[in-house]
Design a protein around this nucleic acid. Structure first.
Length: 373
RNA sequence: GGGCGGUUCGCAUAGCGGCAAUUGCACGAGACUGUAAAUCUCGCGGCCUAAAGGCCUCCGGAGGUUCGAGUCCUCCACCGCCCA
């Protein structure tokens, strides 16, 4: 593994080398929570040009389960995705499934939202699970604080997060040593900065994590708050320059552009796939410009169920070269949505992901001169 | 010809004396940020109001009983089923 930073001007561009391949930064990861990008085949995702996807330890631990993954050699083969996979730890589920969980310094206990049985996650268990999954980038178990949140609560959550980060790193190093993995073939492990929107806590978070020395750093607990870029910039300025930065769960296209402008390398978000399934589709209107403050959106959103699309025989986005836009019309997409045909979800997800992934490629190829314009 | 049953906001339904009136679908408007999400929220007779709320018109038609009727009674119209 390695992270080569090629340039930092106008944006940070680099190459992340992982056990399952190289990934150009900055990049966006489609989300395959339970081992599938919802409604898409792995081949669809590959054809979209995605170089890495995200999956979720908590959900995979429930089904198909840790023993299953160990027995059958992990997630890559199981889901037919040979490229890199980043796995989230389940830290976000500590937040999103908060009514089903109990946090102690030792770990977190969930009551499964599926069948009610108890699931215990500790930092060590989560690292073990990510090795079983065959993850290329592992995220440590963290406590994702809600917002709004008092300084005291945020600090308590952070202290647990930091202790878990330390334990995760120790456990990870132990396994790497035991498995005799080398710097070339081992997965990466990322720490996660927490501390809600309190700058002193974020500073403490980043200071402690960098002491532990992770391969990269997640900025967690930020989405879906408004006007986050200034805050993100504040974090990226504290993070080591030579390690990848991952803004977890962000975000809307303009959030990503702004975050790239302030030095973030990695993103994931449910928006393109979820909104696709819900009938909300992105249409590009201009080239995204790299700026810390996007004043004018470079896209519009089409709510495909609207009556005005009933007889609209144009492609969804005439300038898009995805499968959906080159083979179907707005009218047909609307018809599929209204009649609840499963095909709609696939076509819509393909398009919205194409929009996000193309946007990332455009950001990657932005040159000095184009920024000067 | 006789006997039942029915007629409620686009469609389908609830309603058994205090109702602008239930629910589903359809339709319309929104939301969605490390996915418990092919989900959720709101609107859906008209008018006034920032809102609380107020006013008007309403349950096939016409009468009637009642303080009060979608609900009870009478007649009429139409639809369905059964018997001749």
């Amino acid at each position: 593994m390695s992270f080569k930073l090629l340039t930092t001007n106008p944006i940070r561009r680099g190459v992340l080398t992982l056990p399952h391949g190289k990934v150009q930064t900055p990049f966006f990861m489609p989300i395959a929570t339970r081992g599938a990008v919802k409604s898409l085949a792995a081949d669809d995702v590959k054809k979209l040009g995605a170089e890495i996807i995200l999956s979720n330890t908590y959900h995979l631990l429930q089904r198909p389960g840790l023993e299953f993954l160990k027995k059958h050699g992990g997630l890559h083969g199981f889901m037919g995705w040979p490229k890199p996979i980043l796995t989230d730890s389940g830290g976000f589920q500590v937040f999103s499934l908060s009514k089903y969980r109990k946090i102690t310094p030792e770990g977190v206990t969930f009551q499964s939202e599926i069948d009610g049985r108890k699931i215990f996650l500790s930092p060590e268990k989560v690292v073990d699970a990510q090795f079983a999954i065959g993850s290329d980038i592992m995220m440590v178990l963290d406590v994702c604080s809600p917002w709004p949140c008092t300084h005291k609560d945020a600090d308590e959550g952070l202290n647990i997060t930091l202790d878990w980060a330390r334990r995760s790193k120790v456990h990870f190093d132990k396994i790497v040593k035991r498995k005799k993995l080398t710097k070339k073939n081992r997965p990466l492990i990322f720490g996660i900065a927490q501390g809600s929107l309190y700058k002193d806590l974020r500073k403490k978070s980043i200071a402690e994590l960098t002491k532990l020395g992770f391969d990269g750093y997640g900025i967690g607990g930020v989405a879906p708050k408004k006007k986050i870029t200034e805050f993100v910039k504040w974090c990226t300025e504290l993070l080591p320059v030579d390690k990848p930065r991952y803004l977890m769960g962000v975000g809307r296209p303009e959030d990503i552009v702004e975050a790239v402008a302030v030095g973030v390398d990695m993103f994931d978000c449910v928006i393109p796939t979820r909104e696709a399934r819900h009938g909300s589709l992105f249409i590009k209107t201009s080239m995204p410009k790299i700026t810390e403050s996007v004043k004018k959106l470079f896209y519009t959103t089409a709510h495909i169920k609207k009556e005005l699309y009933t007889h609209d025989m144009k492609p969804l986005d005439p300038h898009c070269s995805c499968l959906t836009c080159t083979t179907t019309t707005r009218s047909y997409l609307r018809h599929l949505f209204v009649t609840r045909e499963a095909l709609f979800m696939r076509l819509a997800s393909i398009h919205n992901l194409a929009f996000y992934l193309n946007m990332m490629r455009e950001l990657q190829t932005t040159t000095m001169s184009s920024r000067m314009k």
